[in-house]
Design a binder for these strands. Structure first.
Lengths: 144, 144
DNA sequence: ACATTAATCTATTAATTCCATAGACTTTAA
DNA sequence: TTAAAGTCTATGGAATTAATAGATTAATGT
């Protein structure tokens, strides 16, 4: 299951995608509109900013806004950044690889194979889920 | 990421599949051969037994053994039992459904769709990964 | 009947991760 | 120069996960 942090990040980014090219949006607004604890959201947005997904502007009239186009930001990268590995086992993770300490030999492990397939399918789907697609879908479903 | 408990369960079951129809195997042996803390393993095997995946026999010559054929036990059911939901969001889980409290409306949520696809692909793969296939693969890869 | 073997049950503790909040500091615009 | 808003550091609590300890129960062979 994804962490709250990660879900909050996705919701916040979708919200910002909706306001793309409309100037900075402040934390307070996102926090209220999407029911995310403000202080927690601060930390999340900061991290997204350090990852160059968001830009920010301090002071009056400041706030956060997307650094990239909504069509260039996808769920795969958001999840990797905010949650960590996407794979179900550390030993099949591309970005967060670690040796499974309960395994004897990766070469002869019959279990990894299935999890490699799961990983690849998952990356495929999440990598193709961009913010603009999510937004389009919400509009099609009638979200206000 | 899967919990250790779940990984231990998978390894123990593969070990027992290897000894299928060769009589009860005791906890101690599985624990030693697969580097699983004995006491922790006890609890795991007990749970698998309560779920009718294993049978047990007490006393001298006792131990655990598969209740079903290795071709009838797959990773999907093991994970659901030992780890919980397979979906990445509670609101798209088939067996552990819960409303996402940070979401406003499931009907108009543009995010769920991708996670439903991930879930379905994952179930497909894990559901087809049976103990006997895992064993065959290990033999093919040259595990002793 | 008895001793031994091995699973079962009940508690408890330790470690880790996750979620959330507090408060001081910095930058920017009006 | 004052108010608005992001930035940084630190901390606390809750929940979950991992592991251990000790007593009990059941089956088996002699």
């Amino acid at each position: 299951m994804l962490s709250k942090k990660c879900k909050y990040a996705i919701h916040a980014l979708v919200y910002l995608a909706e306001k793309y090219q409309q100037g900075p949006v402040h934390i307070q607004e996102i926090s209220e509109k999407r029911n995310i604890p403000k202080k927690f959201l601060e930390a999340i947005l900061l991290e997204l900013r350090n990852a160059k997904i968001l830009h920010s502007k301090k002071g009056k009239g400041g706030g956060y806004y997307l650094h990239q186009k909504p069509s260039d930001i996808n769920l795969m990268e958001i999840i990797r950044l905010m949650h960590g590995a996407i794979a179900m086992l550390p030993c099949v993770s591309l970005n967060y690889y670690e040796k499974c300490d309960e395994c004897r030999s990766e070469k002869t492990c019959g279990i990894r194979d299935a999890f490699i397939n799961v990983r690849d399918e998952t990356l495929q789907i999440l990598g193709g889920s961009t913010l603009d697609k999510i937004l389009k879908r919400e509009k099609a479903l009638g979200a206000k």
